[in-house]
Design a protein around this nucleic acid. Structure first.
Lengths: 238, 238
DNA sequence: GCACTGGACCTGTATAGACAGGTATGACAG
DNA sequence: CTGTCATACCTGTCTATACAGGTCCAGTGC
């Protein structure tokens, strides 16, 4: 391609705007130079300015309103697109005490399905943990987790009553990407007992795969039906 | 803006490609017509074809390799920041035909709860739509939506069999932020009938609030238990 | 004083044409 | 047979230009 990325003209325009936001010269809500102004100021074509502003809007940095102008987005809109929340923080933030109950810790050979999920050979050892998160001693979430021991050594040796698996993992293997699959289901008996559910209570299953350098962990979280899984995200209109 | 959503040329190009993927004429890994071919085939300019393919690549539907070509992405890989997905695109991309069945359209006075959600006075009129999304005529999602008529005029006048509410709204009120609350529940009888569920089937409820300039819409999506809600997010430090 | 209108400005979209640089393939020389 | 090179094709980027339609304001006419 024409240029080594950073040198591309539309990148320069993006940088020009971002730099002013970073410096505080443009605060949230402030009007950003219009496309035509950028054309005159920076000597680019309008299509190039348009691309730069459009991409920044898609990133949630700017907000564009047809016929009006382009503005710096609210700061909070800027927050991480999707955060893998720490349930411990969340429970505490709501004024409850958080406690972890460890049900099972083990090393298990990967089944074929797990091996595929981790891109390992079947039979490779995987660390396994099953525990519940309690809010005021009421079980709120069952967390079943497989961890790639290559990617996160020392996982099973962790004291999960002090450090949640989530906290441990983001320290050891900084999160780069996460995939979520959310489903509703009627849980099996073992889970039902852990969450103290009545038969017929629906549960929320969130299956999560996290990536750092390679596959790190695969998690299945089952939630108590009273609980909710909340996400806030910025959604670039593409 | 120039055109009413579905008529935009680059949308037509996107649809042209998605339709072929949906039909199975283009399978994952297959080569997608190059920009120049699309120019000749569809009579659009190359910039327009480029935009369409670029956006589909950004959505994870296609993979582009400079100097080589454009290819249909692996069905799985679908990775992008949390996005309010267009279920119509998703159904088509998986090879099914998408159809919308409108159950009810109405203007309703806001209840106290709704008024609070929209930051309006109780009794203010809200547009209401209830419809199902069908994949190959099997109901997959019930979508119940309240829309702030101030923020999205003309909502009820839209032909939802041609333009989904989602498509209409992102045109009219570019999305800035969305909040999701995900829960599992046993749906009430009306929903159960719409989704053709057996009593005891759990359903996934996704409650979504979208913001543009002010509160735009409040959506409750109920999914068929066989379906999944997939999210993928990159968590880069910004 | 008020309602209306025209113009200035903005974004959204579309077009045609151009060059840079990556990739693959086949022809050609060794 | 092997290595090199020209070439065709592809995407990435940039420019100049154009028109549609929304928004806002100021000026005009009543």
């Amino acid at each position: 391609m024409a240029l080594p990325a950073a040198a591309a003209r539309y990148h320069q325009v993006k940088h020009f705007v971002l730099e002013q936001i970073g410096r505080g010269a443009l605060v949230p809500g402030a009007r950003v130079p219009s496309e035509n102004v950028l054309v005159r100021t920076l000597g680019v074509s309008r299509m190039t300015a348009n691309r730069a502003l459009k991409e920044l809007a898609a990133d949630g940095v700017l907000v564009r309103v047809a016929g009006v102008g382009t503005f710096v987005a609210d700061a909070r809109v800027h927050a991480h697109p999707l955060e893998v929340r720490n349930i411990a923080d969340e429970i505490r933030a709501r004024g409850h005490t958080h406690r972890v109950r460890v049900i099972e810790l083990a090393t298990r050979p990967a089944t074929r399905e797990l091996a595929e999920r981790f891109e390992l050979r079947p039979g490779s050892p995987l660390d396994y943990s099953l525990l519940t998160h309690l809010a005021d001693d009421v079980p709120l979430q069952v967390e079943e987790r497989y961890v790639n021991p290559q990617a996160a050594p020392g996982y099973l040796a962790t004291d999960f009553s002090r450090t949640t698996p989530h906290e441990f993992l983001i320290r050891v293997a900084p999160l780069q990407r996460a995939e979520h699959i959310v489903r509703a289901l009627l849980p099996e008996r073992r889970i039902r007992r852990l969450l103290r559910l009545k038969p017929g209570d629906a549960s929320l299953l969130i299956r999560r795969r996290t990536f750092s350098q390679g596959r790190v962990a695969s998690v299945a979280d089952l939630y108590h039906p009273g609980s909710r899984y909340e996400l806030a995200a910025n959604c670039p209109p593409r």
